[in-house]
């Protein structure tokens, strides 16, 4: 059965779009049929990260308004045949998105894909609430710093109250993805500790993505990091996170400074 996943955070610039592309590509690399959906109307950039910006004809709003069919708006990835993008509009007003329009699109995407991954805009306004509205599960992206964690907490409150799942009295499954984890700053104790983040958010950990030049390199060439260099640290961390989303148990690796030459494995903490 299809799963609808929202990638959300509250705060901007924490790595939602990067993570949507990387998790989407990783799941597709693992054989799943995936569509990534850009909800960031007016500030779209998932198409850039996916390297599809020159092939965008129709977008989410066109489909929501019935101007285009879903099949006309979906863009197939050039590298992976089971990975698709539904782009956002860069020019239209976000008020053009209606609740019913989104409901129908998500329902149709469910019939065609194994995974529907929604890239949420920042903030707690309409765009963000629409992106989470029809989700089954949520990935809450946070950086190891106080304001990002507090915004994540706020978003979790909304996931538990403003989604269809919540309104039906069901629990939405939630995962925390810690991104931009700077190993050298962590070793100097300059960032929020992972245990503290998990204690504050009280949501299971999906993965820890290191701050890395590999992410920038990949986005500059329009490729999800897991596709651009599958052996890089962030790609491996995203691959592991994608496996956990599929229900596998994968040992959590806390990124450490590479020059130390070893990985600090934390046994006993599962992403369950």
């Amino acid at each position: 059965m299809a799963k609808v996943l929202v990638v959300t955070s509250g705060k901007g610039g924490v790595g939602k779009t990067t993570s949507t592309a990387a998790l989407g590509a990783a799941l597709a690399q693992q054989g799943e049929k995936v569509v990534v959906v850009d909800f960031d109307v007016g500030l779209r950039n998932l198409d850039l990260i996916m390297g599809a910006e020159r092939r965008v004809v129709f977008d989410l709003i066109n489909v929501a308004q019935g101007v285009a069919k879903l099949s006309q708006a979906l863009i197939r990835d050039k590298r992976l045949e089971n990975l698709w993008l539904l782009p956002a509009s860069q020019t239209r007003d976000k008020d053009a998105l209606t609740d019913e329009g989104i409901r129908d699109i998500i329902a149709e995407l469910r019939t065609r894909f194994d995974w529907v991954i929604c890239d949420s805009p920042a903030g707690i306004e309409r765009g963000a609430t629409l992106a989470m509205r029809y989700a089954d599960e949520a990935v809450i992206v946070t950086n190891p710093e106080v304001s990002s964690v507090r915004d994540a907490d706020r978003i979790i409150g909304m996931l538990d109250s403003k989604t269809v799942k919540a309104e039906q009295g069901e629990q939405m499954k939630k995962h925390v993805l810690i991104t931009r984890y700077d190993t050298s700053r962590a070793s100097r104790g300059e960032m929020l500790n992972i245990d503290d983040i998990l204690e504050i958010l009280a949501v299971p950990l999906l993965g820890i993505i290191p701050e890395s030049q590999d992410v920038l390199k990949a986005s500059n060439v329009g490729s999800p990091v897991t596709l651009n260099d599958a052996t890089s640290m962030p790609a491996r961390a995203y691959m592991d996170a994608a496996r956990r989303l599929s229900g596998e148990t994968v040992t959590m690796v806390v990124p450490t400074e590479q020059r130390k030459g070893f990985m600090d494995r934390l046994f006993g903490r599962r992403a369950a």
Partner: peptide, 8 residues
């Protein structure tokens, strides 16, 4: 029964 989140 559930945590009270930021903003609530």
């Amino acid at each position: 029964q559930n945590p009270v989140r930021s903003g609530q």
